[in-house]
Each structure stands twice: as structure tokens, then as C-alpha cells.
Design a protein around this nucleic acid. Sequence first.
DNA 1: CGAGCGTTTGAGGTTGCTCAACCCGAGTGG
DNA 2: CCACTCGGGTTGAGCAACCTCAAACGCTCG
Lengths: 202, 202
Amino acid sequence: MMQELFEKNLTHLGTPTWYSRNEEIFVEGELATGIFKIKSGCMRTATVLSDGRRHILSFYLPGEFYGLEAGRVYSVTGESVTRCKIHMFRKNALFEAADDKIAMRLLMIAASELSRAQKHSLLLLRGAKERVVGFLLDMAERQNNWQQVDLPMTRGDIANYLGLTTETVSRMFGRLEDSAAIAIERRRVTLCDLPALKEMYK
Amino acid sequence: MMQELFEKNLTHLGTPTWYSRNEEIFVEGELATGIFKIKSGCMRTATVLSDGRRHILSFYLPGEFYGLEAGRVYSVTGESVTRCKIHMFRKNALFEAADDKIAMRLLMIAASELSRAQKHSLLLLRGAKERVVGFLLDMAERQNNWQQVDLPMTRGDIANYLGLTTETVSRMFGRLEDSAAIAIERRRVTLCDLPALKEMYK
DNA sequence: CGAGCGTTTGAGGTTGCTCAACCCGAGTGG
DNA sequence: CCACTCGGGTTGAGCAACCTCAAACGCTCG
């Protein structure tokens, strides 16, 4: 896999760091010097509108990358959702060490970011229940586990990401549980009726 | 500018084609062999959900590129919004002709696609009026004209892209006109009170 | 055991959707 | 030259979905 190769070649160029909960990892507007790989825990990216509203644009789980920007500065702020370990690669180092395949690897990372952002847009074009179901299915896929999903983030974060309110997310969870499609315990969700869920988010 | 360079070097590898209105340019699921640059007119990308609903993910104006995919196949369908001229580059040809900077150029295109998709997500996280205003401001910026905006697409396409209904888009246009922020004539919109508009979409 | 955050639940209000009618301009054919 | 049609756009009334505000509950961690 390309990511394995990428990491193998470049681990020595990066630095692993531990963050506790809700720490800033990089800040919107800063010179975008780093590329990040999540080793454990969960990171989110968010942007702040000038009136103070905050929007979460993405969550990052172990194994996933962040860091390719159109501009020279970060367009979002990166924050730890939970205590987490994150490996940072400096772009300069990458480019200095560049063999002729490295840009291609970066291209693949950018393309997967793009695909992620498009999925998010599609999610936001739907109704509340569908958004919640789509979110659960996406998390299940990324955790590679269709039985149970861990939700490292709060309901508030989920709601913000989905363009809903905490209350609505909670109610949708409730309704899904009532219909026996899922079972909820704290921040672990069991996908009891996967076909039904996939039917809701087709 | 990077795009000039890109095109200059590679024009001979591409083929320009004319499309009439509402033609398919490439289809979701097809092997993604091409990269497209809009020369005139307007293109849109859309995806069809399994229940038949269609969602427009992006519009492309003259000078803009489409074509970098995470996977080997197109994840969306490309269609002409108006009669338009589009230049297609074959990826294979690009890679064969690759000097050591070409992957970097592709990376920049991918990054701008990403930024576009993120803007779309942010748009969808807002209320109806804000979405419409945000859309107008985005089009103005991309057309490099803060006085007047051309809207090559129908209200239906705008609504679909914004996750609203035609009626709502029409009403929001009406309300903006009533408040003297814009003036509408067919598919040309004059931005009468730009500060007010920017205030609405801050 | 208390404090505080995160979550759930309920009642009422607002936004944007649905359904329906109507308008307008561009083609088309008599 | 007018009548008809058709796609696109606007407008209005009623309704459903989702939000707001408010209260209560339950972990978790001092």
C-alpha cells in the first residue's frame, strides 16, 4: 500500500507528538508546513466564521492523513478530539528528500481528502436522519467494523459536523434505537440492522 | 501562473471539443482517463443516488479544471450546463510526458478541487439566504467581476447545488432584490450592495 | 459527595418544503 | 402575424422538519 511505503521511507523525517483532549495541533492561517498522520485517538478540523460560529469540516481516525492545502497557510484549525498521538512530517523535508514518486503519493493523499470532502457535501444535502445514518456508516467503514462503531467525539461535535443541533442528533439516535436499527451505550453504537441502515442511506 | 505553464506545455496532448447544452461529457463509474479544462461555457458535476435523486456537486467556469479522482473511475458525471468548449488531456499522455514538476501541478489542481469542495460544505452548513448569497459571491469571485454575475445555470440547478428547492432560491432572490442588495434580469445579477451581501455571508 | 459537562427529553416556534397555480419568453406551426 | 406549447421562473397557502429554549438526568472526576 502506498501509505505504508510513504511512512516507511519518511518516518525518520517526522516527529510523533502526544496531545491531550481539545488541544490545538495547528491553526487556521498559520504557514502550512506540516503533514499529519494520526497514530491513535481522533483529530478534527474546524473553521471559524467571522461572526464566531465554528464549523467542523472533518474527523481524522488512526491511519488517516491531513495536510495538503491549496494555499500556503492552513485553511482550517486542527484539534485533538481525544487524547491522541500524531506524527508530523515537515513538507520541506519531504520535498528535499523527494524521489520522483513522492509528489504522486502526496497527490493520492490530496485525492482522498477530496473524496472525503465530497462525501461530506453529499451528507449535508440530505435530511437529518439520513445524515446521522450516513455518518454512522462512514465511521463504521473507516473503523473497518460493521458491527460496532466508536464515536470518540461528543454529540455536539457530531451535530456541528452534520449541520444539525445536539438535540436533533440525540433524537435521531433515539429513533434509530426505537426502530431497533442500532443500540447505543455511551459512545459506542452497535449496528443491529445494517441492511436497514444502508437502506436509509442509499 | 502554474495553470498557464501547465497548459502551454501540454496543449498538444489534449483535444478540444464542443458540447451542446445538457450533454454528458464523462460518466460516473467510467475509467477516469481524462483531465478537463473549460475553455468557454459551463460544466457541472453530479452524482446519482441509488433512489434516483441527483445532486450537483460543482460548477466549472472557463479556466477551471476537473479530473483528479481518488479512485480509478470517475466518482461523478460531467455534463454541459450551456454550449461549451472543453479541452481534454489524457492522463496517460501527461504521465508519459512527465517532467519532474508535473505531479506537483496535478497536486495543485487537486488542492484547488479540495478547497472548492470545502467551500461547498461550508455553504451547506448555513441557512437558505446565506447559501444563496454565498453562491453569488463565489460566482462573482470566480468570474472576477464584483459588479455583475452571470448565472449560466437554471434556478433548479442552483437549488440542487445548494440543497434547496427552486421555490426557495427564487424567494431568496426576491427578498434580496426587495432589500436592494441585488438586481435581477433573467440570468444576470447585479450586486448593488456588495458590503451588505458580504455582511450576510461572513 | 458535589460540580460540571455531556446527553436526553419535552413544548413551542420558525424555516424551508410541498403542492398548486400562474407568468413569461422563446420556439413552432397554422 | 397570431395561437399554442413548453421549459423555466415566480408566487401563495399550508404543513412538516428541524431549531430554540428550558429542564432534568447521569457520568466522571475532583
